[in-house]
Nucleic acid binder design. Structure first.
Lengths: 336, 336
DNA sequence: GCAGGTAGCACAAACGTTTGCAATGGCTTT
DNA sequence: AAAGCCATTGCAAACGTTTGTGCTACCTGC
C-alpha cells in the first residue's frame, strides 16, 4: 500500500539506489534533473520513509530517549526544553517515556523499549532505578546519563546540582538573614538528600550552630511531605526558618504553617529548593535556591553526543533567588 | 557485536526460525527442552531483540505516540497517566514527543518522526496543529485523535470536555451562589474558547442577565493572561466573580486581584476551569469546574484501538468542585 | 502393517532501505 | 588517439527478524 523507494524508482525511471541517494541528499551522487524527477515522483506517490528499514541497515538510530518518572516533578519540562534545544540541531529526535518511580516493572518496560530500539542515548530524568534495571541498562552499549538525581552506585554518570552546595548555600543564606534555628524538610535518605543534609549541617557548624535532630524532617520532596514536616515542627516551632526539599514541599510547609496559625514569613521563613515557576505564583512568593534545570538538559545531550571520556559526574550552577518568603527572624527585626 | 538470533541459533544448535518462535512464545511450535536451550543461550549472549528488524517484517509497530505542546499544560500528566494505564495492558508502548504549540517546524518534525515510524496511533495533547501539519497527518493511514482541545475543522476526531457545558455549568454555579455580574477570563478565540463563551452567555441569558462585553477578557489560558484580564477589570471591578479559562489563569487573576488590593473571595470570587492539583495548593483553594483528564487519556487509547467507527467527537465528564475561592457576593451576604 | 496424523524443526523468502563496487559515457589531458 | 578522470547511475548484498511451507520421524488406530 504505502509507496516504497522501488515504486518511486519505477515511476522516475531510475534505480532504487539513486532514489535513496536523492532522498538522502547525498550531494554529488546524482544529476540535477534526475533529482527533480525523483522528488516529484516521491511527492506524487505520497512517499513516507520507513524508519525501521533505515535503522536496520544503518544500524544507527536518530532517537534520543528520555525516561521520566511518573510522579511529576514539575521541573521536568525545563530539563526537557534544554534537551530538545540541544538535540534538535544535532538532528536527534527526542522521545520521552514515562516510567513509574516506584513501579519496577514499568521501569523495566520503558527501558527495554528504548534498548531494543537501539536509541542513541538514554537520559534518565530524576528516576531512581531499581538495581535490576540499572544492571539492565549497564549491560547495553547505549550511553546513558542520570539527570537531576544520581544513583548511589558511584560510577553511574549523572548531571545534577552539587547537592552538598545546595544544602550549604541555602543554609548560609538563611544564616546570613539572621536565622540560627533552621529546619530542613522533605529531603530523602538517598544520596541527594544525604548530601543536602551534609551541606546544611556544615553551614550550621561553621556558623557555630549545633544542629538539632528534630530540625531535620525527612520526606520525599512532595507537597504532603512538606505538610507533614511542618506538622512535626508544630504551632510553636523551634525553628525560625525552614528549608524545603522542593518547591512543592515548600508550599506544603507554607500551607500547613497557615493551618497552624503561623504567618509566612512573619512567624516563619520558608525557602524552597528548585526555583520553578511555582515560586512566583504562590503567595507569598517563595525565596528559593534555584537549580539550572535547562542547563542540565543541555549538558545531558552534550555528554551523550561527546564521548564518554568526560568525567562521570558533572554539576550545573545554582543560585539563590530572593523573593518574599524569607525575612529576618523576629529577634533580629526592629519591629520588636 | 550485539547478538542476533542467528548467534543464538548456532549456540543452541537450532535454526533461527526456531529461536524466533521460542523467543516469541509461539506455543506449540517447539519442544520443551529446545526452548530451554534457546532461552539459556539467549541469556548467555545477552541477546536484545532488534525492534527495527521486527517492525520491518511484521509491518506493525507496538508504539503509540503522544504529541504534547511544549507550553506545559499542567494537566498533561493526568491525561498521560490515563493513556499509559490503558495502553499498557494492550501491549502498547507509549512514546511522547514535544512539539511547540507555536513552532510549526517543530510540530512537523515531531509528526514526521512518528509517521515514519509507522506508529499504531497518534494522540495530540492540547496541540493546535498548523493547517499544513494537519494535512500531513491526514495524508497517512495512521489513526489519530485530538485530546483536550479540538480543531476548527469539523471532521477531526477529538475527545474533549463539552466546552459549551463547561461554560454553561460553571456560570450556572456562580449564578446559583448569587453572582450576576460574572466575568469570563483568559479563554481563547479558538473553538474551545468560543464554546465556553457561548455556554457562559446562555447561562447568563437564562438567568435574565445581559452579558456586558467588558466582562469577557480573552486570553491564552496562561498565568499572564489571567493577570492581564484582572488588570483590565481593575481595582473596582464591575464583576463580582470571575471564571478563568484554566487553573493557571485563575491563579493569575487571584494574584493580580491581590495586587489591586482586592481580597479573594471576600471582594471577588474566582473560579477555575480544569481542577488540577494546583487548585488545592493555592491559597485560597480554588473552586473549579473540573475536567476528567485521566478519562480523556483512557478514551483516546480506546478509540485508537477500536475501529474508527465511533463518532469522531466524544466528551468526558465535568463537574464542579467547591473549594474556598467562591462565596456569595457582598450584596447577598448577611455581614453587610 | 499401513494410511493418516502430529510434533518438532529447518529452509528460504520477504520486509525497505543503504552503500560498496562496478559500469557507462563523455570529457580532458598529453 | 590513447589514457585517464569524473559525473552519474545500476547491481547486489546486507541489516535481523518473521512466517508459510515442507520435511522428517514418530505415533495412533484399525
Amino acid at each position: 500500500m504505502a509507496a516504497t523507494i522501488k515504486d518511486i524508482a519505477k515511476a522516475a525511471g531510475v534505480s532504487p539506489a539513486t532514489v535513496s541517494r536523492v532522498l538522502a541528499n547525498k550531494e554529488g551522487f546524482f544529476g540535477a534533473q534526475t533529482a527533480v524527477r525523483v522528488r516529484e515522483a516521491a511527492r506524487q506517490l505520497g512517499y513516507r520513509k520507513n524508519t525501521a528499514a533505515t535503522e536496520l541497515v544503518t544500524q544507527r538510530s536518530h532517537d534520543l530517549a528520555v525516561i521520566v518518572n511518573a510522579t511529576q516533578t514539575n521541573f521536568a519540562n525545563q530539563i526537557i526544553e534544554g534537551i530538545q534545544a540541544t538535540a534538535f540541531p544535532a538532528d536527534l529526535n527526542v522521545i520521552i517515556l514515562y516510567a513509574g518511580d516506584a513501579d519496577e516493572e514499568r521501569q523495566r518496560r520503558a527501558l527495554t523499549t528504548v534498548i531494543e530500539r537501539a536509541v542513541r542515548g538514554i537520559l534518565l530524568l530524576s528516576v531512581n532505578l531499581a538495581p535490576a534495571n540499572l544492571a539492565l541498562l549497564r549491560s547495553t552499549e547505549i550511553p546513558y546519563t542520570f539527570l537531576s538525581i544520581s544513583m548511589q552506585a558511584p560510577q553511574t554518570p549523572a548531571i545534577t546540582s552539587d547537592d552538598w552546595q545546595v544544602g550549604y548555600q541555602a543554609t548560609q543564606y538563611l544564616l546570613q538573614r539572621g536565622h540560627q534555628r533552621i529546619g530542613l524538610a522533605a529531603v530523602d535518605h538517598q544520596i541527594t538528600g544525604q548530601l543536602r543534609l551534609a551541606g546544611y549541617r556544615q553551614a550550621l557548624m561553621e556558623a557555630g550552630v549545633r544542629p538539632v535532630a528534630a530540625w531535620f524532617q525527612a520526606g520525599d520532596y512532595s507537597y504532603a511531605a512538606g505538610q507533614q514536616a511542618m506538622q512535626a515542627y508544630g504551632a510553636q516551632p523551634a525553628v525560625t526558618a525552614v528549608l524545603a526539599g522542593s518547591d512543592m514541599a515548600a508550599i506544603g510547609v507554607m500551607n500547613q504553617a497557615r493551618t497552624l496559625g503561623l504567618l509566612v514569613p512573619a512567624d516563619l521563613s520558608v525557602m524552597a529548593i528548585d526555583g520553578t515557576e511555582l515560586c512566583d505564583i504562590v503567595q507569598p512568593t517563595l525565596t528559593s535556591l534555584t537549580q539550572s534545570f535547562y542547563d542540565m538538559g543541555v549538558a545531558g545531550v552534550r555528554r551523550l553526543l561527546a564521548d564518554q571520556s568526560t568525567p562521570p559526574r558533572e554539576t550545573t550552577a545554582i543560585h539563590v533567588v530572593e523573593r518574599e518568603s524569607v525575612i529576618a527572624p523576629r529577634a533580629h527585626r526592629s519591629d520588636i
